[in-house]
Protein backbone atom coordinates (compact mmCIF):
# COMPACT_ATOMS: atom_id res chain seq x y z
CA UNK A 1 0.00 0.00 0.00
CA UNK A 2 2.82 2.28 0.92
CA UNK A 3 4.36 1.76 -2.48
CA UNK A 4 1.21 2.97 -4.17
CA UNK A 5 1.26 6.17 -2.21
CA UNK A 6 4.88 6.79 -3.11
CA UNK A 7 4.19 5.96 -6.74
CA UNK A 8 1.31 8.40 -6.72
CA UNK A 9 3.51 11.11 -5.21
CA UNK A 10 6.20 10.49 -7.81
CA UNK A 11 3.70 10.77 -10.68
CA UNK A 12 2.36 13.95 -9.20
CA UNK A 13 5.88 15.34 -9.17
CA UNK A 14 6.46 14.44 -12.84
CA UNK A 15 3.15 15.97 -13.74
CA UNK A 16 4.03 19.16 -11.91
CA UNK A 17 7.39 19.42 -13.66
CA UNK A 18 5.57 19.03 -16.91
CA UNK A 19 2.90 21.60 -16.12
CA UNK A 20 5.57 24.12 -15.22
CA UNK A 21 6.30 24.37 -18.94
CA UNK A 22 2.73 23.92 -20.14
CA UNK A 23 3.13 25.72 -23.42
CA UNK A 24 6.37 24.03 -24.35
CA UNK A 25 5.22 20.54 -23.41
CA UNK A 26 1.96 20.91 -25.28
CA UNK A 27 3.95 21.69 -28.39
CA UNK A 28 6.31 18.77 -27.81
CA UNK A 29 3.30 16.47 -27.52
CA UNK A 30 1.90 17.91 -30.71
CA UNK A 31 5.25 17.53 -32.46
CA UNK A 32 5.56 13.87 -31.46
CA UNK A 33 2.01 13.34 -32.64
CA UNK A 34 2.83 14.81 -36.06
CA UNK A 35 6.08 12.87 -36.32
CA UNK A 36 4.32 9.59 -35.64
CA UNK A 37 1.52 10.49 -38.03
CA UNK A 38 3.95 10.58 -40.97
CA UNK A 39 3.92 6.82 -41.46
CA UNK A 40 0.18 6.67 -40.84
CA UNK A 41 -0.49 9.30 -43.48
CA UNK A 42 1.81 7.53 -45.94
CA UNK A 43 -0.06 4.28 -45.32
CA UNK A 44 -3.33 6.11 -45.84
CA UNK A 45 -2.16 7.67 -49.12
CA UNK A 46 -0.92 4.35 -50.49
CA UNK A 47 -4.11 2.57 -49.54
CA UNK A 48 -6.44 5.23 -50.97
CA UNK A 49 -4.66 4.62 -54.26
CA UNK A 50 -4.31 0.84 -54.19
CA UNK A 51 -7.19 -0.16 -51.84
CA UNK A 52 -5.39 -3.19 -50.47
CA UNK A 53 -1.94 -4.69 -50.12
CA UNK A 54 -1.84 -8.46 -50.34
CA UNK A 55 -5.40 -8.76 -49.15
CA UNK A 56 -4.86 -6.35 -46.24
CA UNK A 57 -7.36 -3.48 -46.25
CA UNK A 58 -6.67 -0.02 -44.87
CA UNK A 59 -8.54 -0.59 -41.62
CA UNK A 60 -6.81 -3.87 -41.00
CA UNK A 61 -3.39 -2.31 -41.51
CA UNK A 62 -4.34 0.54 -39.20
CA UNK A 63 -5.55 -1.93 -36.59
CA UNK A 64 -2.22 -3.74 -36.84
CA UNK A 65 -0.40 -0.44 -36.51
CA UNK A 66 -2.44 0.68 -33.49
CA UNK A 67 -0.83 -2.06 -31.40
CA UNK A 68 2.60 -0.52 -31.95
CA UNK A 69 1.50 2.92 -30.80
CA UNK A 70 -0.63 1.88 -27.85
CA UNK A 71 1.89 -0.57 -26.43
CA UNK A 72 4.74 1.90 -26.91
CA UNK A 73 2.70 4.57 -25.17
CA UNK A 74 2.02 2.18 -22.29
CA UNK A 75 5.68 1.23 -22.15
CA UNK A 76 6.79 4.87 -21.97
CA UNK A 77 4.15 5.66 -19.38
CA UNK A 78 5.27 2.84 -17.12
CA UNK A 79 8.96 2.48 -17.93
CA UNK A 80 10.32 5.86 -19.03
CA UNK A 81 12.85 5.40 -16.25
CA UNK A 82 14.30 2.36 -18.01
CA UNK A 83 14.54 4.29 -21.25
CA UNK A 84 16.51 7.06 -19.53
CA UNK A 85 18.51 4.70 -17.35
CA UNK A 86 21.84 5.33 -19.09
CA UNK A 87 21.50 8.94 -18.13
CA UNK A 88 20.68 8.09 -14.51
CA UNK A 89 23.91 6.13 -14.21
CA UNK A 90 26.08 8.74 -15.88
CA UNK A 91 24.65 11.66 -13.95
CA UNK A 92 25.01 9.84 -10.63
CA UNK A 93 21.28 9.95 -9.99
CA UNK A 94 21.33 6.18 -9.66
CA UNK A 95 23.74 6.36 -6.72
CA UNK A 96 21.13 8.25 -4.77
CA UNK A 97 18.64 5.46 -5.40
CA UNK A 98 21.08 2.99 -3.87
CA UNK A 99 21.03 4.84 -0.58
CA UNK A 100 17.26 4.81 -0.20
CA UNK A 101 15.26 2.13 1.60
CA UNK A 102 13.19 1.26 -1.44
CA UNK A 103 13.42 -1.25 -4.28
CA UNK A 104 15.75 -0.08 -7.04
CA UNK A 105 13.49 -1.10 -9.87
CA UNK A 106 10.58 0.64 -8.20
CA UNK A 107 12.45 3.91 -7.89
CA UNK A 108 13.66 3.81 -11.48
CA UNK A 109 10.22 3.07 -12.82
CA UNK A 110 8.38 5.50 -10.55
CA UNK A 111 10.73 8.44 -10.83
CA UNK A 112 10.05 9.21 -14.48
CA UNK A 113 6.98 9.65 -16.57
CA UNK A 114 7.39 11.13 -20.02
CA UNK A 115 3.94 12.60 -20.58
CA UNK A 116 4.57 14.20 -23.98
CA UNK A 117 5.77 10.90 -25.48
CA UNK A 118 3.03 8.91 -23.75
CA UNK A 119 0.36 11.25 -25.07
CA UNK A 120 1.91 11.78 -28.52
CA UNK A 121 2.06 8.06 -29.24
CA UNK A 122 -1.07 7.28 -27.27
CA UNK A 123 -3.25 9.68 -29.20
CA UNK A 124 -2.12 8.26 -32.54
CA UNK A 125 -2.84 4.77 -31.20
CA UNK A 126 -6.26 5.70 -29.89
CA UNK A 127 -7.25 7.42 -33.13
CA UNK A 128 -6.22 4.37 -35.15
CA UNK A 129 -7.99 2.04 -32.74
CA UNK A 130 -11.22 4.08 -32.71
CA UNK A 131 -11.33 4.17 -36.48
CA UNK A 132 -10.76 0.47 -36.90
CA UNK A 133 -12.05 -1.44 -33.88
CA UNK A 134 -15.60 -1.60 -35.16
CA UNK A 135 -14.71 -1.85 -38.82
CA UNK A 136 -12.64 -5.00 -39.03
CA UNK A 137 -15.29 -7.46 -37.90
CA UNK A 138 -14.18 -8.08 -34.36
CA UNK A 139 -16.76 -9.21 -31.84
CA UNK A 140 -15.70 -7.29 -28.73
CA UNK A 141 -16.83 -9.80 -26.15
CA UNK A 142 -15.28 -10.08 -22.69
CA UNK A 143 -12.73 -12.66 -23.75
CA UNK A 144 -11.52 -10.53 -26.67
CA UNK A 145 -11.32 -7.38 -24.60
CA UNK A 146 -9.30 -9.10 -21.90
CA UNK A 147 -6.87 -10.61 -24.38
CA UNK A 148 -6.49 -7.20 -26.03
CA UNK A 149 -5.44 -5.63 -22.75
CA UNK A 150 -3.12 -8.53 -21.94
CA UNK A 151 -1.56 -8.33 -25.39
CA UNK A 152 -0.94 -4.59 -24.99
CA UNK A 153 0.73 -5.12 -21.62
CA UNK A 154 2.73 -8.01 -23.03
CA UNK A 155 3.85 -5.83 -25.94
CA UNK A 156 4.86 -3.06 -23.56
CA UNK A 157 6.90 -5.52 -21.49
CA UNK A 158 8.63 -6.91 -24.58
CA UNK A 159 9.71 -3.39 -25.53
CA UNK A 160 10.71 -2.61 -21.96
CA UNK A 161 12.88 -5.73 -21.94
CA UNK A 162 14.74 -4.64 -25.05
CA UNK A 163 15.45 -1.30 -23.39
CA UNK A 164 16.44 -2.99 -20.16
CA UNK A 165 19.07 -5.13 -21.86
CA UNK A 166 20.77 -2.00 -23.12
CA UNK A 167 20.28 -0.29 -19.74
CA UNK A 168 22.03 -3.19 -18.01
CA UNK A 169 25.15 -2.65 -20.07
CA UNK A 170 25.63 0.73 -18.45
CA UNK A 171 26.49 -1.01 -15.16
CA UNK A 172 29.74 -2.00 -16.83
CA UNK A 173 29.99 1.53 -18.25
CA UNK A 174 29.36 0.28 -21.75
CA UNK A 175 27.24 2.70 -23.73
CA UNK A 176 24.94 1.00 -26.18
CA UNK A 177 22.23 3.65 -26.23
CA UNK A 178 22.75 4.54 -29.88
CA UNK A 179 23.00 0.93 -30.95
CA UNK A 180 19.79 0.19 -29.05
CA UNK A 181 17.93 3.04 -30.74
CA UNK A 182 19.18 1.82 -34.09
CA UNK A 183 17.97 -1.73 -33.50
CA UNK A 184 14.77 -0.83 -31.69
CA UNK A 185 13.41 1.85 -33.97
CA UNK A 186 14.34 0.10 -37.19
CA UNK A 187 12.63 -3.09 -36.02
CA UNK A 188 9.62 -1.04 -35.11
CA UNK A 189 9.63 0.53 -38.55
CA UNK A 190 9.70 -2.89 -40.20
CA UNK A 191 6.94 -4.17 -37.93
CA UNK A 192 4.64 -1.37 -39.10
CA UNK A 193 3.49 -3.60 -41.96
CA UNK A 194 2.54 -7.28 -41.75
CA UNK A 195 5.70 -9.36 -41.44
CA UNK A 196 4.40 -11.67 -44.14
CA UNK A 197 5.40 -8.97 -46.64
CA UNK A 198 9.05 -9.56 -45.90
CA UNK A 199 11.49 -12.33 -46.78
CA UNK A 200 11.75 -15.13 -44.27
CA UNK A 201 15.05 -14.01 -42.75
CA UNK A 202 13.46 -10.73 -41.62
CA UNK A 203 10.42 -12.62 -40.34
CA UNK A 204 12.64 -14.90 -38.27
CA UNK A 205 14.53 -11.97 -36.79
CA UNK A 206 11.28 -10.28 -35.77
CA UNK A 207 10.01 -13.49 -34.18
CA UNK A 208 13.08 -14.91 -32.47
CA UNK A 209 15.67 -12.16 -32.05
CA UNK A 210 13.88 -8.83 -31.58
CA UNK A 211 10.37 -10.16 -31.08
CA UNK A 212 8.39 -7.24 -32.43
CA UNK A 213 6.12 -9.67 -34.25
CA UNK A 214 4.57 -10.42 -30.86
CA UNK A 215 3.96 -6.75 -30.19
CA UNK A 216 1.63 -6.23 -33.12
CA UNK A 217 1.47 -8.87 -35.86
CA UNK A 218 0.47 -11.95 -33.89
CA UNK A 219 -1.97 -10.27 -31.50
CA UNK A 220 -3.56 -8.47 -34.45
CA UNK A 221 -3.84 -11.77 -36.29
CA UNK A 222 -5.65 -13.24 -33.30
CA UNK A 223 -8.43 -10.76 -34.10
CA UNK A 224 -8.19 -10.46 -37.86
CA UNK A 225 -7.33 -14.03 -38.88
CA UNK A 226 -5.92 -13.02 -42.27
CA UNK A 227 -4.81 -15.79 -44.58
CA UNK A 228 -1.10 -15.12 -44.25
CA UNK A 229 -1.12 -16.44 -40.68
CA UNK A 230 -0.84 -19.84 -42.39
CA UNK A 231 2.83 -19.03 -42.95
CA UNK A 232 3.43 -19.27 -39.23
CA UNK A 233 2.61 -21.61 -36.40
CA UNK A 234 -0.89 -20.70 -35.20
CA UNK A 235 0.11 -20.87 -31.53
CA UNK A 236 2.15 -17.70 -31.88
CA UNK A 237 -1.08 -15.70 -31.73
CA UNK A 238 -1.50 -16.54 -28.05
CA UNK A 239 2.12 -16.22 -27.00
CA UNK A 240 2.52 -12.44 -26.58
CA UNK A 241 2.10 -12.36 -22.78
CA UNK A 242 4.38 -15.37 -22.33
CA UNK A 243 7.09 -13.94 -24.56
CA UNK A 244 6.87 -10.77 -22.50
CA UNK A 245 7.13 -12.57 -19.16
CA UNK A 246 9.98 -14.85 -20.24
CA UNK A 247 11.95 -12.03 -21.79
CA UNK A 248 11.50 -9.85 -18.76
CA UNK A 249 12.57 -12.67 -16.45
CA UNK A 250 15.77 -13.37 -18.38
CA UNK A 251 16.59 -9.69 -18.71
CA UNK A 252 15.94 -9.18 -15.01
CA UNK A 253 18.57 -11.81 -14.16
CA UNK A 254 21.04 -10.01 -16.39
CA UNK A 255 20.13 -6.75 -14.70
CA UNK A 256 20.69 -8.29 -11.24
CA UNK A 257 24.14 -9.37 -12.36
CA UNK A 258 24.81 -5.81 -13.44
CA UNK A 259 23.70 -4.26 -10.16
CA UNK A 260 25.97 -6.65 -8.25
CA UNK A 261 29.05 -5.69 -10.23
CA UNK A 262 28.22 -1.99 -10.29
CA UNK A 263 30.66 0.50 -8.88
CA UNK A 264 29.75 4.14 -9.15
CA UNK A 265 31.20 6.36 -11.85
CA UNK A 266 32.00 8.62 -8.93
CA UNK A 267 30.51 11.88 -10.03
CA UNK A 268 27.24 13.38 -9.12
CA UNK A 269 25.69 16.11 -11.18
CA UNK A 270 23.05 16.74 -8.54
Amino acid sequence: MNLFIIFYQYSKLSLKTMLEYKFDRTFITLAIFFREMISVVVMFLILTRFLHIKDWQLFELFFLYSFLFLSYSLFIFLFAGIRDFDHMIHSGEFDRFLTRPLGLMFQIVASRVDYPATLGHGIVGIILFMFTASNVGIDWNIQNIIYYIIALIGGAIIQASIFMISASFSFWTIRVENLRNLIFFNSRRIAGYPISFYPSIIQKILIFVIPFAFVNYFPAQYYLGKEDIELFWGGYMYLTPFVGIIMFFIVYLFWKMGVRSYSSSGNSMY
Binding site: I46, N178, N181, L182, N186, R189, I190, Y193, F197, Y198
Partner: peptide, 22 residues
Amino acid sequence: YFAGVINAIVMILVNIYIWKAI
Protein backbone atom coordinates in the same frame (compact mmCIF):
# COMPACT_ATOMS: atom_id res chain seq x y z
CA TYR B 1 27.77 7.57 -39.04
CA PHE B 2 26.74 3.91 -39.07
CA ALA B 3 23.26 4.77 -37.92
CA GLY B 4 22.82 7.09 -40.89
CA VAL B 5 23.75 4.41 -43.40
CA ILE B 6 21.80 1.61 -41.74
CA ASN B 7 18.67 3.71 -41.22
CA ALA B 8 18.64 4.62 -44.90
CA ILE B 9 19.12 1.03 -46.02
CA VAL B 10 16.41 -0.27 -43.69
CA MET B 11 13.98 2.38 -44.89
CA ILE B 12 14.73 1.47 -48.50
CA LEU B 13 14.30 -2.22 -47.72
CA VAL B 14 10.98 -1.78 -45.93
CA ASN B 15 9.57 0.39 -48.68
CA ILE B 16 10.69 -1.93 -51.44
CA TYR B 17 8.93 -4.88 -49.80
CA ILE B 18 5.77 -2.86 -49.35
CA TRP B 19 5.75 -1.90 -53.02
CA LYS B 20 6.59 -5.44 -53.97
CA ALA B 21 3.53 -6.58 -52.02
CA ILE B 22 1.41 -3.94 -53.76
